[in-house]
């Protein structure tokens, strides 16, 4: 008697569990389908395309801090990057760095005087083998077909693994809601929210409109942008005819930003 009641309860319990699990499993299956489903979509007409975008920065044309300002300003303005008084909350996509911090592995006590005091423009290197992409547990940071290391802010959970993984400090975290700290919002571009990471996106939204990155446009030719895998491209011509350096190459990240010094 006792025994058969126990058996009955067991079977009833398992069946109930099975019945209630079904819709849950179905919901998950649906979710995965949703991610994989492709809608009838196409790139914009006239979008700039490349196998792997890269940039060459000619520091001979950017000798002073003043000279870097327009590029930093335009980038931060069009991308709604907030300005925080508190340095620890600072958000930056592109900024100025001294030689010994930008290239610590090339620095030594007798380094050339011009280079020692030269302000370097630094930004995300859109690394070929990007450690931030590997670190991100949600694929919020990922590599796009044209080599751009992009961020899907919708998926960022704010764990900051990517920040720990990036050896260049290219990423910033929104400790606070950025909106009140944006002087003039560019209504064409979204802002971020509190709790996500952000960084330079090589102006992918402009490339899709057929435009060069904003910093390149503002640089008077000091910054050149193009396809690293096309031997005819302007960046490849510059790399062929000038000696260039990249940041922390020994780490094996394969930075796509080159500097002529």
């Amino acid at each position: 008697m006792e025994n058969s009641r126990r058996t009955f309860l067991k079977i009833a319990g398992i069946s109930a569990l099975g019945l209630s699990a079904k819709p849950v499993l179905d919901a998950f299956a649906l979710d995965i389908d949703m991610l994989n489903k492709k809608i009838n979509a196409a790139p914009k007409n006239g979008a700039l395309t490349a196998k792997r975008w890269g940039m060459v920065i000619d520091t001979r044309k950017l000798e002073t801090e003043e000279a870097l300002k327009p590029m930093i300003e335009v980038c931060h303005k069009i991308h709604n990057v907030p300005v925080h008084e508190n340095k620890r909350h600072e958000i930056k996509w592109i900024w100025e760095e001294g030689f010994k911090h930008a290239f610590p592995d090339l620095e030594h006590e007798y380094v050339n005087e011009r280079v020692e005091h030269l302000p370097f423009l630094v930004l995300c290197n859109h690394c070929k083998d990007a450690p931030c992409v590997r670190a991100c547990p949600t694929k919020a940071t990922f590599k796009q077909a044209d080599g751009i290391v992009a961020m899907d802010f919708h998926r960022c959970i704010g764990c900051r693994f990517c920040m720990a993984a990036c050896p260049y400090g290219s990423r910033s975290f929104n400790f606070r809601d950025p909106r009140p700290f944006i002087a003039e919002i560019n209504k064409k571009y979204p802002t971020r929210m509190r709790g996500v990471v952000e960084k330079c996106n090589f102006c992918s939204e402009r490339l899709d409109e057929g435009l060069q990155p904003a910093c390149v446009e503002a640089s008077n030719g000091a910054l050149v942008f193009g396809d690293l895998e096309n031997p005819e491209s302007e960046v490849r011509q510059l790399l062929k005819t000038n000696y260039t350096i990249r940041r922390k190459v020994a780490l094996g990240t394969g930075p796509s930003v080159y500097y002529i010094v």
Binding site: K38, N40, A41, A42, K44, N45, Q144, D152, H154, S204
Partner: peptide, 11 residues
């Protein structure tokens, strides 16, 4: 489509 593939046009 937009954030991942940069396919911005919907037909």
């Amino acid at each position: 489509s937009v954030a991942r593939d940069r396919n911005r046009i919907y037909v």
